[in-house]
Design a protein around this nucleic acid. Structure first.
Length: 333
DNA sequence: TAGGCCATCTGGTCCT
DNA sequence: AGGACCAGATGGCCTA
């Protein structure tokens, strides 16, 4: 028999658990479940607990069955296991069902919080949802990047900001971030609303795009983009210090590189914004309007690192695909 | 088809 | 005693 997977239920819906399923006719007389053992996972010992119940006493009926203990059971050290009477089984199941419901609810709360976090990330797409781990990484990077921007008075469109933001992210997420923050409003005008990216806070109700992601940007060949060189850049800045980062965040490691900056300065709510929140009618600005500064020059390069692929028909549900152009050279001076 | 991600169940541990 | 939290295990879904 196949056990259906659990899905997140709408409010009011009731979940049927294997334990409840156990309560049906499929339970064997001795109380051990017919639920496939593999469904439970865990070790043999745990499995035994599940079947025998590791719960506390049910005094009645106990002594009478003493002689029926199997030999291994009687030789075992430690407190003797109480036998699983029917009443104890029922209590155990009821408690387990309650615990399962609590655990589900707890995890839903966790997921809701994660969803809230996603919604204020600089890259927010309903069609290309960040995974949990990537959400956390990006959140961490975002905080670091904003802190650095505040500290150094840099633009949140600066290269440094982008670098920090993309540190240690997976290739698809890096692509998403890049597409998010570097693509202007022009070609995306016809996109699905849910593909528009909110830049904390979400899109300006007055209209205008704050940027968008291409739905399903292919990973490679985008991706010779390597964050290793970013670490290099940071190392050159000589800002190695303090234990703000987990030990695994070393330059040579695969995980998210360390944030080696100073402690995060206090951020006001209003400061938790990036400039693109107020969309410019000319974003990205044409070259002749662009600031000649070095950082902006680099930024302009990044903004022009995608071409709009106009091949084939497209409409609001099939927006033009963004085709990368030499993304690897974006961060080179 | 393998691998990534996810939801869920579960037992253990800690805390109130 | 019961709840919160955690980590291990499992199977389903999706995508490259």
């Amino acid at each position: 028999m196949m056990i259906k997977p659990y899905v997140r239920l709408a409010e009011g819906e009731e979940v049927i658990s294997p334990l409840q399923w156990m309560d049906g006719d499929v339970s064997s007389p001795d109380g051990s479940a017919s639920v496939p053992a593999h469904h439970y996972g865990a070790s043999g010992a745990s499995q035994q607990n599940r079947e025998m119940g590791s719960e506390d006493a049910e005094e009645d009926e106990e002594d009478a069955d003493e002689g029926l203990e199997d030999e291994n059971e009687s030789r075992r050290r430690g407190p003797k296991k109480k036998r699983m009477t029917k009443a104890r089984q029922e209590r155990f199941r009821a408690r387990r069902i309650k615990a399962n419901a609590r655990e589900r609810s707890r995890m839903h709360g966790l997921n809701d919080a994660l969803e809230n976090l996603r919604s204020i990330m600089p890259c927010h797409s309903k069609t290309q949802k960040l995974s949990k781990i990537e959400t956390l990484r990006l959140a961490r990077n975002y905080i670091c990047a904003l802190s650095e921007a505040l500290e150094a008075g840099l633009s949140t469109e600066s290269r440094a900001f982008m670098e920090t933001l993309c540190k240690g992210l997976s290739q698809p997420t890096t692509n998403l971030v890049a597409g998010c923050l570097q693509i202007g409003s022009g070609p995306g005008a016809g996109m699905r609303p849910e593909d528009r990216l909110g830049v904390c806070p979400p899109p300006n109700p007055l209209g205008g795009m704050v940027g968008y992601t291409s739905p399903g940007l292919p990973s490679p060949p985008y991706g010779t983009y390597d964050t290793a060189h970013m670490l290099h850049l940071r190392a050159m800045k000589g800002r190695q210090s303090e234990n703000h980062s987990p030990p695994e965040y070393n330059a040579g490691s695969v995980g998210t590189p360390p944030y080696d900056g100073p402690p995060t300065p206090p951020l006001s709510i209003s400061s938790n914004m990036v400039p693109k929140q107020e969309p410019s009618p000319h974003y990205p600005p044409p070259p002749h309007q662009y600031s000649p500064s070095n950082v902006d020059q680099v930024l302009y390069q990044t903004q022009t690192s995608y071409d709009v692929h106009l091949e084939g028909p497209y409409d609001s549900y099939h927006p033009p695909r963004m085709v990368p152009r030499q993304i690897t050279s974006v961060y080179r001076d």
